[in-house]
């Protein structure tokens, strides 16, 4: 009983720490700029959530909606491509023996440890040379590569795809790519979900790459767009209110996704960390 009270109070204190900023954000989104500065941040003051959130969506010809769609495009397409490429590469590295296999794997593994931001700058210079900057492709192409995904998929394929199944399919005369597409991908589904979620959230949260690559506001993901609003608050105080409302709108879908799909994080991560 004594333990139970101590544990419960420690957990409650931690929950307050993690939830208070979210609570503040929800309340703040119901206020205008005057209310933000002039009222108690931990309580309502003349709340108009619908009206203020509509203002976010309407501002500057609805640019906010476009940013959200861009984010969905970058994260959705990037994560799908990264998942497919990682699973194919991970499966090949796990189930085929060929010269240089371990070298390839070790180089990819080293890629996990390279800071993504150290790559973004030279990548910009390279893309600039071939005229690829300031386009959807400039952000999408780098997002399709996930060394961590290959690492997870190799471990998962080695453990979960039975050699007997592959041999049986080969004896039946199935081509290698058909085996991968019809059998292997199905067996690897749990790993694929994890890689997809990792990459999706990673791209959605990414800021440095689009900041470096993009100059046209219309191509911005929502992270970059909101930061640009935040940077202009000195000149247009209404942007305080819009930044707060926009921040709330943008985090709601992802927060729901994170909480609902928690178990995939846990199951997939075990695969990765067990081998380290």
């Amino acid at each position: 009983m004594k333990y139970r009270i101590i544990v419960a109070s420690l957990l409650a204190v931690a929950a307050v720490y993690f939830l208070v900023p979210v609570y503040w954000l929800v309340l703040a989104a119901t206020k205008d700029t005057t209310g933000l500065f002039g009222s108690n941040g931990f309580w309502f003051a003349d709340p108009h959530p619908i009206r203020y959130l509509r203002m976010v969506l309407d501002y500057d010809n609805g640019i906010y909606g476009r940013w959200i769609l861009n984010s969905i495009l970058y994260a959705g397409v990037g994560a799908t491509a990264a998942t497919l490429l990682s699973s194919a590469a991970g499966y090949a590295l796990a189930k085929f023996s060929f010269p240089g296999r371990e070298t390839v794997f070790n180089v990819v593994l080293a890629g996990v440890l390279i800071p993504a931001t150290a790559l973004a700058l030279p990548l910009y210079l390279l893309f600039n040379k071939i005229g690829l900057t300031n386009s959807y492709a400039a952000v999408l192409i780098p997002c399709m590569v996930s060394p961590f995904g290959v690492y997870l998929c190799r471990i998962y394929a080695a453990a979960a795809v039975p050699d007997g199944l592959l041999e049986a399919a080969r004896i039946d005369g199935a081509g290698e790519l058909a085996i991968f597409g019809r059998i292997v991908l199905r067996v690897m589904t749990p790993a694929l979900v994890t890689v997809f979620l990792f990459q999706f959230v990673g791209i959605w949260n990414n800021f440095f790459l689009p900041l470096v690559m993009l100059s046209d506001q219309k191509l911005y993901p929502v992270t970059l767009g909101l930061t640009s609003w935040h940077g202009y608050t000195d000149r247009a105080p209404i942007l305080y209110q819009l930044t707060v409302g926009g921040a709330l709108l943008s985090v709601i879908p992802l927060m729901i996704l994170m909480v609902v799909l928690q178990r995939y994080w846990r199951s997939g991560l075990t695969q990765g960390s067990l081998k380290v």
């Binding site: 993690f18 979210v22 800021f207 992270t223 943008s250």
Partner: peptide, 9 residues
Amino acid sequence: LPHGVPGVI
């Protein structure tokens, strides 16, 4: 939950 909030946000 906070991991669902991007770093800049």
